[in-house]
């Protein structure tokens, strides 16, 4: 598909900006989520993906591009990624992309990847803090028709071959895969320690570096496949979740007294071996 690259890895890191979960409020009257007051930050697992990309670049050379889809206010966050070490950044931003579910999101991201050009590796965080579906990396791999690995713990380039060695998390263990390039790989949260901003890059990253902003026209996306129109799933309703009917009995007293009351309780509740 892509010409063999002899000059290191061409990596694209998908990055999303999310609101801090604890700051999102629910408007009880309209049953909608109010994110306006919430501070935003880069989705933490995406920083692990960026760190993975930069480590691979340190080891094999090449270049790292950042790709994101979202409103224009994402741009400064992409510049932060440039300050950390990425070489280029692209933001897919258009009203037509709004309200996308995973099918429409992955289609749009795939068009962005294609516009960036030939690539070896697309890295994503395992899931986003707000959506948490973990469905974007597999969907993106399908649109691009390339290999996919989810929940990666470790990634290494196989020298001299268009191939990676990837360790992947499984239920109760892990597996080691050999993966043909190009590929889409999602990186587990906390697999590495993301590096800090490089102050020597700051001025360039925050002011000079161009951030490519592409809309539907630039990507030549099919309007039937993007945004709300391209999303087969819809929110059919919201429901207030009832808090279960609990006793909410407070145990008070000294630590010793509470401990005794709890011990009595637990002995009857568990028929514990302690009893």
């Amino acid at each position: 598909m892509n010409p063999a690259s002899n000059n290191g890895l061409r990596t694209i890191v998908c990055l999303k900006v999310v609101p801090r979960p604890e700051e999102v409020r629910v408007d009880a009257e309209t049953m909608t989520l109010d994110r306006a007051g919430a501070q935003s930050f880069i989705n933490p697992p995406d920083l692990n993906a960026l760190e993975t990309a930069l480590k691979l670049k340190d080891a094999c050379g090449g270049e790292v591009s950042i790709l994101s889809m979202g409103p224009p206010f994402f741009e400064p966050y992409l510049r932060l990624a440039l300050a950390v070490g990425a070489d280029r950044a692209f933001l897919l931003s258009d009203r037509a992309f709004g309200g996308a579910d995973t099918l429409a999101t992955t289609y749009t991201l795939a068009k962005g990847v294609e516009k960036i050009g030939a690539f070896d590796l697309v890295l994503c965080g395992e899931e986003s803090l707000d959506g948490a579906t973990a469905q974007v990396p597999p969907g993106l791999a399908e649109w691009l028709d390339v290999a996919q690995v989810t929940c990666a713990l470790e990634i290494e380039k196989v020298p001299g071959k268009r191939e990676m060695r990837v360790q992947r998390e499984l239920k109760g263990g892990s597996e080691t895969l050999s993966v043909d390039l190009p590929a889409v790989v999602s990186v587990k949260a906390n697999v590495n320690e993301p590096r800090f901003i490089d102050y020597d890059r700051m001025e360039w990253a925050l002011q000079e570096a161009p951030v490519g902003v592409w809309g539907a026209g630039d990507l030549a996306t099919d309007p039937e496949l993007t945004g709300l129109a391209g999303s087969p799933t819809t929110v059919a309703g919201v429901r207030q979740v009832a808090t279960p009917d609990r006793r909410r009995k407070h145990l008070s007293g000294s630590a010793g007294e509470i401990a005794r009351a709890l011990a009595d309780l637990l002995r009857t509740q568990t028929g514990s071996r302690g009893g």
Binding site: V24, R25, V26, M31, L33, P232, T234, V235, R239, V241
Partner: peptide, 16 residues
């Protein structure tokens, strides 16, 4: 279950 306290969203896929 979505963001924040106490709401769940019902998701439907009507035509596909």
């Amino acid at each position: 279950t979505g963001f924040g306290g106490g709401v769940a969203a019902i998701i439907a896929c009507k035509e596909n």
